[in-house]
Amino acid sequence: MFEAKMLQSSVLKKIIESLKDLFADANFDCSSSGITLQDMDSSHVALCYLKLRSDEEGFEDYRCDRNITLGVNLGLMSKILKCAGNDDVVTLRAEDEPNILTFIFDSKNSERVSKYDIKLMEIDSELLGIPDTDYSCVVKMPSHEFQRICSNLSQLGDSVTIDCHKEGVDFKVAGEQGSGAIKLKQTTSVDKEEDQVTVQLNEPVTQSFALKFLCAFTKATSLSDTVNLSLTQDTPVVVEYPIAQHGYLRFYLAPKIEE
């Protein structure tokens, strides 16, 4: 038996909304330690990795008697979650050898309980081993700032060059019709921690990435006030959105290379 009671259905809604356009079907791997999801986009350029820890406060109850994999169409899951109120408590439930995933939405005042079942799918997905590495550069910035940068630069070109150095981080685009550059300096005088830009730099990095994917990742902006970009030369960038009281959602994107 698997049963996970999440205090805020809005968190699950935001997660699925941020994934469903790049990742059509995905396996939720459930174990006693929590729920993980790893999926690659159809072109094998971008990867998402979701971790929701069972011992965090976002789960009111969590039970997973044996490890199970729940293969779900994310478009369908998004439709089901739209049936929940943002303040509803959502319970996910499945048997040990499941064909069906059940969603139960409890309104805050417990006056309305709704239940939906969806059929599970067999999904053959290629799991990748992602080594734990120290990155040359980790940029922490407000998530809405990163969203704005990606949106602004995507008007002029297909790829952004991210240049991390000791003064800050530069985002540059060069298209056929024009070019643009946004410089972010490290902030020290900002009151709120979530408004700060910080750059932890071991080595400078200059790397180009497809804006189409970065813009898609920023659909997760509402999950977190801040976003962390981890970069090392010639390796995929990690775009991480911490999820309060649950864990995190990470996106990996392979760099563009010069031929």
Partner: peptide, 14 residues
């Protein structure tokens, strides 16, 4: 010319 590498070039299948 800019090319887009795939993730397989960096991570191995498990």
């Amino acid at each position: 010319v800019e090319m887009q590498n795939q993730l397989f070039a960096y991570f191995t299948a498990t």
